[in-house]
Simulated assay, not measured.
Amino acid sequence: MAQERSGAATFKGNPITLIGPELKVGDTAPDFTVSKNLLEDASLKDFAGKIKLISVVPSLDTGVCDAQTRRFNEEAAGLGDDVVVITISVDLPFAQARWCGAAGIDRVVTLSDYKNRSFGEAYGVLIKEFQLDMRSIFVLDQNDKIAYVEYLSEMTEHPNYEAAVEAVKALR
């Protein structure tokens, strides 16, 4: 049974429970299996050798998640080919593709944690009450060591975009 962290965060001030461990800088990033589309899966090894900025959002169809994904799409342009920017949500792959098309998102890889919440549990961001992944940021180096992590304490707040981008740049 996965670890539960009661009251680890809030949604509009109300405590929520996160399932999975709280990862820290220096930890080896756990593997995960998420969906690229309905028939194709992806895992951490698919991005081997790259610096990874993983932006986790509850749902692309909400204001903060929309803004967060657009911001990292803009930032991705200046980060270089050795960096992959990934957005993970539990939205269905169809919804992710529709949203990206409508929003003009072309530099961020969107992956879906809808099937088995593998990412959410492995990274300690699965919200027990909603079965969504909590807003968070992870920066992994080329060897999958965690160089930066931000678990937001309130689901409706924005992450520290500048700190995440600086963490990526520091790995060069």
Rank of each mutant, 00 (worst) to 15 (best):
E40Q: 13
D41N: 15
D41V: 10
A42N: 10
S43Y: 10
D46W: 02
K50P: 01
K52C: 07
K52N: 11
K52S: 07
L53N: 00
S55H: 02
V56N: 01
V56I: 07
V57A: 11
P58E: 09
P58M: 05
S59G: 14
S59N: 07
D61K: 04
D61Q: 07
D61H: 04
G63L: 11
D66I: 10
D66L: 10
A67W: 11
Q68K: 05
T69W: 01
R70P: 00
F72G: 02
E74F: 03
E75C: 09
A76P: 02
A76Y: 11
G78C: 05
G78Q: 11
G78M: 03
L79F: 05
L79K: 09
D81N: 15
D82A: 13
V83K: 03
V83C: 04
V84D: 05
T87C: 15
I88E: 03
I88D: 03
S89L: 10
V90N: 10
D91E: 11
L92E: 13
A95I: 12
A95M: 10
A97N: 06
A97C: 01
R98T: 15
R98D: 05
C100M: 10
A102G: 05
G104C: 08
V108E: 01
S112G: 06
Y114T: 06
S118N: 14
S118W: 06
A122M: 06
G124E: 07
V125E: 09
L126H: 05
L126A: 06
L126T: 02
I127Y: 06
I127T: 04
M134P: 04
M134R: 13
F138S: 11
V139A: 06
V139T: 13
